[in-house]
Simulated assay, not measured.
Amino acid sequence: MANQKLQIQTALQILKPAHQVFQAIVDPAKMSNYFIAEGSGPMEEGKTVTWKFPEFDETFPVRVGKVEQDKYISYYWDGTDGTELLVEMTLAPKGDQATVVTITEKEMDNNEAGLNWLKGNTAGWANFLACLKAYLEHDINLRKGAFDFMKPES
Rank of each mutant, 00 (worst) to 15 (best):
L6F: 08
L6N: 09
Q7R: 14
Q9N: 12
Q9F: 01
T10D: 09
Q13E: 15
I14E: 06
L15R: 11
P17D: 06
H19T: 09
Q20C: 01
Q20V: 04
V21W: 01
F22V: 00
Q23S: 12
Q23F: 02
Q23W: 04
A24E: 10
A24L: 08
I25E: 06
I25V: 13
V26T: 12
V26P: 00
D27K: 03
D27L: 02
D27N: 13
P28M: 05
A29F: 06
A29E: 14
K30S: 11
K30V: 08
M31V: 00
S32R: 07
N33M: 04
N33Y: 04
Y34W: 15
Y34E: 03
F35S: 05
I36T: 09
A37C: 02
A37T: 00
G39F: 04
G41Q: 05
P42Y: 00
P42T: 06
P42F: 02
M43F: 14
E45L: 02
E45P: 03
G46Q: 07
G46H: 08
T48Y: 04
V49T: 05
K52C: 05
K52G: 12
F53K: 02
P54V: 10
E55L: 01
D57N: 12
D57T: 10
E58D: 14
E58K: 12
T59D: 10
T59Q: 14
T59M: 10
R63G: 01
R63E: 13
R63P: 00
V64G: 03
V64P: 04
V64S: 03
G65I: 03
G65W: 08
K66R: 09
V67M: 09
D70A: 13
Y76A: 05
Y76H: 11
W77L: 05
W77F: 11
D81Y: 04
T83V: 13
L85F: 07
L86F: 07
V87G: 05
M89I: 14
T90G: 06
L91N: 08
A92F: 04
A92G: 02
A92R: 11
K94A: 07
G95Q: 07
G95A: 09
T99R: 03
T99I: 01
V100F: 00
V100R: 08
T102D: 01
I103T: 06
I103F: 03
E107N: 15
D109A: 15
A113K: 14
G114W: 02
L115F: 03
N121A: 09
N121H: 14
N121I: 03
T122C: 07
T122M: 12
T122Y: 06
A123T: 12
G124Q: 12
G124W: 10
G124S: 13
N127R: 07
N127I: 03
N127W: 11
A130T: 09
L132W: 00
A134F: 13
A134P: 08
Y135N: 13
L136I: 10
E137L: 12
H138Q: 15
H138R: 14
D139E: 15
I140R: 08
I140V: 15
F147A: 10
F147Q: 14
D148K: 10
F149D: 14
M150Q: 15
M150I: 13
K151L: 13
P152T: 09
P152S: 11
